[in-house]
């Protein structure tokens, strides 16, 4: 298993753990004096599971298992895929910070954080597709 795949898979596991834990906290709100901004974290819960866990796991395993790109560069541009890893996870962390801030009414601070989160995740997807498209081929 390539080193980058290990990072993707382990990060995916962390995202799943954080996401599922957040899911528990969200449904436990009636049982404790929860701050109002916590409700704003519901979309983050869904994205930690679908993007941070499922999609990131696919990115990592795909990087490992899809047909080789070429003899010289079997997994395409490895540096690009490291950038994908960084952008995806930085984007998710920024969302985890930005959504509750927005829920707390701190739009001036939350706005740029969430906008950066959105486009970092988009760049990660674009980088993955750019590097992986040609590896999906008949042989």
């Amino acid at each position: 298993m390539p080193r980058l795949t290990r990072w993707f898979v382990r990060s995916a596991l962390v995202n799943m753990l954080v996401g599922m834990s957040l899911g528990v906290v969200l449904v436990a709100r009636p049982y404790f004096d929860s701050p109002g901004w916590l409700s704003a974290a519901a979309p983050t819960y869904l994205h930690l599971i679908t993007v941070g866990w499922l999609s990131q796991l696919i990115f990592g395993v795909g990087h490992w298992m899809f047909p080789k790109s070429s003899r010289e560069f079997p997994r395409g541009d490895e540096r690009l895929m490291w950038l994908v890893f960084g952008a995806l996870n930085l984007g998710l962390v920024m969302r985890l910070i930005g959504e509750p801030l927005l829920g707390a009414g701190e739009r001036t601070l939350a706005g740029p954080i969430l906008a950066a989160s959105a486009w970092l995740q988009w760049l990660a997807v674009a980088g993955f597709l750019l590097n992986t498209w040609d590896r999906v081929k008949e042989r």
Binding site: S55, G111, W119, W122
Partner: peptide
């Protein structure tokens, strides 16, 4: 994935800004 992620980025930017 590309289509859905683009829409998601636009929607989250709208929510933020």
């Amino acid at each position: 994935l590309g289509f859905g992620a683009t829409l998601g980025a636009i929607i989250l930017t709208t929510k933020a800004m």
